[in-house]
């Protein structure tokens, strides 16, 4: 009995973004994740590992261990990340946080430039998370990184103007971040494109939660955004950034070394990060910002399987 394969006729596609000195491409898909039988996924989901510009204060030992000798040297740390096989380096400018060193724009821009010069993969530059401060430092960082085709974030409804203007002027792309609401995601994308930044230079961040901590909200936002993108809603048709590492390593299941009924921490912690990432990958996530090198390896092994043809 011949089964007529049910294929959706999608009318539109996700924008394709080009990043870094090596021209890494992300996005561009014309179907839902890994449904190769009805459309194209021209680029695989990509990974980045995080570098802090000061020694991280709240990382569990299992996370510090792979970087033990470079935690206070962002340039060496970034190089190590490239050795570990991540597609990109995500530099987080924690030192600018008023609670930490309250570093100036010029100081953090210097670090960002040194890191960018040391690697040949794309650089993602992330502010300290305080919207006002990021609105001040990121434009200066964008200028210092002119021509490096970085991905800069996070632009929010509060501070997107200065970040977008500078990113546009110096050839970068922007991460647009809005809290867990598809309409807010869309609205911020509209505001940013109205400033003249083209859609293929925006990636949105729906503020994901980790496995066990609200993962289902961002999961459904991504599924809805992908349906929107493929049916012609251009303002949802941008790649999606997933800050998986930051969230997954907050979970007790990842960072608590001693809960016998959950099994040894090594596999459990990695699986917490990897399962959070793979779950978003099947919902439509594009750029995965992770923390542990083993997670990158595992995630890539999963993507290798998922990218195999399933044409009928």
């Amino acid at each position: 009995m011949a089964v007529t394969i049910a294929k959706e006729r999608w009318t539109s596609k996700v924008a394709e973004m080009t990043l870094g000195p090596n021209g890494l491409k992300v996005g561009g898909e014309t179907t839902l994740p890994f449904l190769h039988f009805e459309g194209e996924m021209p680029n695989r989901p990509v990974t980045a590992l995080e570098v802090f510009d000061m020694e991280p204060q709240d990382w569990p030992d299992i996370l510090k261990e792979p970087f033990a000798d470079v935690l206070s040297d962002p340039v060496a740390w970034a190089k190590k990340i490239v050795e570990y096989g991540a597609d990109m380096v995500a530099l987080r400018l924690m030192s600018a946080h008023p609670d930490w060193k309250d570093a100036s724009a010029d100081e953090v821009a210097k670090t960002a430039k040194a890191v960018a010069e040391a690697i040949d993969v794309p650089l993602i530059v992330l502010g300290c998370g305080v919207e006002e401060k990021d609105g001040q430092i990121l434009p200066v960082v964008a200028e210092a990184l002119e021509g490096k085709r970085c991905l800069i974030g996070c632009a929010t409804a509060e501070n997107y103007k200065s970040i977008t203007a500078a990113s546009n002027a110096y050839g970068h792309s922007v991460i647009a971040s809005s809290p867990l609401d598809i309409n807010l995601c869309k609205q911020l994308n509209i505001l940013i494109t109205e400033m003249g930044l083209s859609l293929d230079r925006i990636a949105f961040d729906p503020l994901v939660g980790a496995l066990g901590y609200g993962i289902e909200y961002a999961y459904s936002i991504m599924e809805r955004a992908r349906m929107g993108a493929l049916t012609g809603d251009k303002m949802l048709a941008t790649p999606i950034v997933c800050f998986v590492g930051m969230e997954a390593w907050k979970a007790k299941e990842a960072k608590d070394p001693d809960v016998p009924e959950w099994g040894p921490q090594a596999d459990r912690a990695i699986l917490w990060e990897v399962t959070t990432a793979t779950t978003f990958a099947i919902a439509g996530g594009t750029i995965f910002i992770l923390r542990h090198p083993e997670s990158v390896k595992r995630f890539n092994a999963f993507i290798n399987e998922a990218m195999k043809s399933n044409a009928y």
Binding site: L211, E253, W262, G263, D267, R268, T275
Partner: peptide
């Protein structure tokens, strides 16, 4: 093993 089952 619980570490493999708990995530699922």
């Amino acid at each position: 093993a619980p570490e493999h089952i708990l995530p699922v």
